[in-house]
Amino acid sequence: MNIFRLAGDVSHLVAIIILLLKIWRSKSCAGISGKSQVLFALVFSTRYLDLFTVFVSVYNVVMKVVFLALSYATVYLIYMRFRNSYDSENDTFRVEFLLVPVIGLSFLENYAFTPLEILWTFSIFLEAVAIMPQLFMITKTGEAESITTHYLFFLGLYRALYIANWVWRYHMEGFFDQIAVVSGVVQTIFYCDFFYLYVTRVLRGKGKMSLP
């Protein structure tokens, strides 16, 4: 554990809590892509199956359980409790265009051809692209509420901090997880355009982000 990794995990947690609280307090999930949230729930579900097979640390177990619980709570709020506010007309990204290549890749490129390893690899590849329905929705409607952009900022920050973590671990421990690093870098690139808009429009404009 290093400071980048810890800060990354905290950013990830903050992002998820921001989104959950926003939906809970406003009793609305307008502007939120339910598809992205289902994909994230799927990411955690397939990655954290090792909760049943290996014990890494108390921290590891607690965080995994929290991420799983919060992601399912978010999906529940969007599709059940506040489904009347769900903007399904603008949440039209074709998820199968992500799932098919991701499933294919996880069978081709993995550390071991075992069910758990293939599912772990699937979760890593899927996480890299799971935010695309949300970004697509913002592009389609041309705007995002500021709280939604804060959510995306912390999610992107988490990815950027994980890259710093990997640089640190490579130099200090000789640790290099090629699958995680390559997909993590790809994932972070998706946020670069958003980071630019976030700084230039949301932080300076203090309002919701609208695209030109």
Binding site: R5, R47, D50, V56, A112, T114, N165, D177, I179, A180
Partner: peptide
């Protein structure tokens, strides 16, 4: 180390 059973990151 083949990376298997070694996924200590979240």
């Amino acid at each position: 180390d083949d990376g298997v059973d070694d996924h200590d990151e979240l």
